[in-house]
Nucleic acid binder design. Structure first.
Lengths: 225, 225
DNA sequence: GGCATGTTTCGATTAGGGTCGAAGGATGAA
DNA sequence: TTCATCCTTCGACCCTAATCGAAACATGCC
């Protein structure tokens, strides 16, 4: 007993409301300044500063100076995955936010998870790519098939530029209880959707809003060929 | 902002050292009495009682009266999965336990995760079953192949008795960064290993200790046919 | 340099919760 | 019924940590 890593400090770090709000805000994937995070958490700048220092010391976020601002971002996508898993369980055990905003349905439909698409459409994308045999499972990892490489090229994604990042990290939706495509390819696809004008990122939110023609094009994309 | 489930209360619940120790003790999968958990956490019975009440109210554990004892168990395997994920990250971010016991190497080798095998051998089992095409992935879920059904029967597992529980829930090792086989089949296989005398559960610990001949048999089992 | 903006440090206050001693049920055994 | 065991409730203590006001530090702009 008492072996293995100690989870209490890590969980306590996430367990404070102000810090949890900051982390939740950062799942969007973009870096935010200390001031923005303070507002997001509903505390003063001094308080936020102390929280941010602790989060950074705990390895959950990474600071980066830029002029007189300090931008903070999640330290990695596994942090985002952990947070989504926590949301998933919080949802299941009834730890809902008391003040559930009107934005919720849109969030469930499509949202950003770190740098890739999540929500109903995120899962639909994943399923579609598997069904079309663009992606395939090889044991524990996802691979891009030959057919998938053709698809990516035609769709305007430069595979060579993606680097060696894993194609799929497991990332469970809290809304849909399925995993969706994360990793370099997931990020590249979402970017391409933006470029094609199919969807745009809602300001100050994780919501991804598809245009009507964009949604139709997306549905053609994920439909089994 | 401020949408989605609220993770702070849930994380705070796990974030207390006493409660974290209790939860960690329960990953072993067996139910423990309130007194045992108090000893495990290093607190008095009164203190433990209050903690257990809060964990139960939070939906993390489920109490069950049995005579004058009250047995507590994790409320589900997704709780165990979350705890393993927390351990995984705690390991990565250096939140090691200061007093790292001598049992650690054995834990990394093979241990119980709720009701199935985890650690190096757990991952090896998973890989072996995939390689032998006993299991196959269909999109997001694992399925037992035709060949797998034959295998199960020959290995002495009554599939009909397993019920409809999902074959594989994602459960990431904190030691090996891969997923292993959970679910009904995972539990049945581990049970069969016990029955065959290949391995036994170490008392008061998550360690699964294989006998030398048992380990050889296990290795033949997972070797690609 | 002088000023504005963003961030941190210091100090003091306060609230929340973890802790245990003592007493009060509840359950099973004799 | 009486006793022993297990667990919970109550009350009090104490300590951590969250919070903010005030002031200091850092950086960029004019």
């Amino acid at each position: 007993m008492k072996s293995g890593p100690d989870i209490a400090p890590l969980a306590a770090l996430i367990g404070d409301p102000a810090r949890a709000n900051m982390l939740t805000a950062l799942i969007g994937g973009e870096a935010l300044t200390a001031g923005e995070l303070a507002r997001e958490a509903g505390v003063t700048a001094q308080t936020a500063s102390s929280h941010l220092a602790r989060l950074a010391a705990g390895g959950l976020i990474a600071p980066r100076r830029q002029g007189r601002h300090i931008y903070y971002a999640l330290a990695g996508s596994d942090i985002a995955a952990l947070l989504e898993k926590l949301m998933h369980l919080a949802e299941r055990t009834g730890h809902r936010r008391t003040r559930t905003g009107p934005a919720e349905p849109a969030l469930r439909k499509a949202r950003v998870c770190y740098d890739h698409l999540a929500g109903e459409l995120g899962v639909a994308l994943f399923d579609g790519l598997i069904a079309r045999r663009i992606l395939a499972r090889r044991g524990d990892v996802l691979v891009l098939t030959r057919k998938g490489e053709d698809f990516a090229q035609k769709f305007g994604i430069d595979l060579a530029a993606l680097g060696r990042r894993a194609l799929c990290k497991d990332c469970l939706d809290w809304s849909v209880r399925r995993s969706h495509l994360a990793g370099a390819l997931g990020a590249a696809l979402l970017n391409r959707f933006y470029e094609l004008g199919w969807a745009r990122r809602e300001k100050n939110s994780r919501i991804v809003r598809f245009t009507p023609p964009g949604l139709r094009a997306f549905e053609r994309l994920v439909a089994a060929a």
